[in-house]
Amino acid sequence: MSSKTMSKDLYGDKRMGFFIYLFVEAIMFSTLFATYIIYTPPQMGLYPGELFKLHTVVLASVFLLSSSGTLMIAEKGLDRKNARMILTGLLITFTFGATFMYFEVDEFYKFISEGHTVAKNNFLASYFVLVGLHASHVLFGLGWMIVLLIQRKLLPFNLFAEKHRIFNYYWHFVDIIWVLIVIIVYTPYLF
């Protein structure tokens, strides 16, 4: 085995595989978007516009979208093999992601405690499945970042960089889905 190109080859394989996986995710989300569009607005129950709060959406978006930017710091750090930049980037991104999760959980909690549950109508059901699946992706990403923070010291740099870059693609993808959620789920009913 020629060791010169090994990590490059294997990373190439993995990146392609992961992109294909993201394609699979994209199809899952598009199916859920279609479901949401079909069932919204509902035949009975509250109109979505009466439920969504503009400031929650804006705040959540600001944090999640800028977290994609702060992750760039870590990415730069990978290119320059700068451990401090990687650490800073990851930590800021983690904080922003966690803040986003706070808004999400808060919103879900409010809806449910006011009686707007999955069982109420299909708009709410498709909303919870779609946005909930996205939120669980963010949550999974947060866990992934913790793992990366620990792996930083344990793995050979090339392997760590590879895992980190794959995570970056994941995080950007989750961000893109959020943009689509804002456009399709919230915007039509907020204004």
């Binding site: 294909i20 394609f23 699979v24 995710e25 199809i27 899952m28 199916t31 859920l32 479901t35 069932y39 509902p42 035949q43 009975m44 549950t117 999955v118 069982a119 109508n121 299909n122 059901a125 498709s126 499945v129």
Partner: peptide
């Protein structure tokens, strides 16, 4: 890659109908 994710979501929605009280595929709503 195109077909199975759609099945996964369909099954997820059906599971919500069966276990969490949503009504995606019920007659009335």
């Amino acid at each position: 890659l195109v077909a199975f994710p759609v099945l996964a979501i369909a099954l997820l929605l059906l599971q919500f109908d069966r276990q969490f009280g949503s009504q995606f595929f019920m007659g009335e709503l």
